[in-house]
Amino acid sequence: MSLYFLCFILFCVGLYSVLRKRNIIKIIIGLGIMEYAVNLFLILVGYRMHGRAPIFAKDQEILNMVDPLPQAMVLTTIVIGLAVTIIAVSLAIRIYEKYGTFDITKIRSLKG
């Protein structure tokens, strides 16, 4: 329970960064922190006390495995997060090229 709550505090730090910062790179960093928190929360839900990793070994019987389903879902989410970060960085570079700043309050002009 306390682990879940700490994980949610991590999410809120990222959300604060997205809501309150004016630098685009800081907003991208906030998105990354939120992604970390969500991934960690899904894995925390699937953990079993004194569990083993969900990989069968050759000669031994493993009875107490953790849940393999959230791990399989999160595995692809991490790579998608990387792709999203790269798209956001390239958008930020385009914005910097056009307006000469990373400040989001300066780029509201509708110059097209």
């Binding site: 991208i28 960093i29 960690l40 894995i43 569990g51 083993r52 990793a53 953790v66 991490i78 990387l82």
Partner: peptide, 28 residues
């Protein structure tokens, strides 16, 4: 944390993704 939670697949992927992410962000 992934290693402690018995998810070695995710630990490997997260480590590698982190390196590439830092390279891209610093380059940007």
């Amino acid at each position: 944390a992934f290693l402690i939670l018995k998810a070695p697949n995710l630990a490997i992927t997260q480590l590698v993704v982190e390196i590439l992410c830092v390279i891209v962000l610093i380059r940007g």
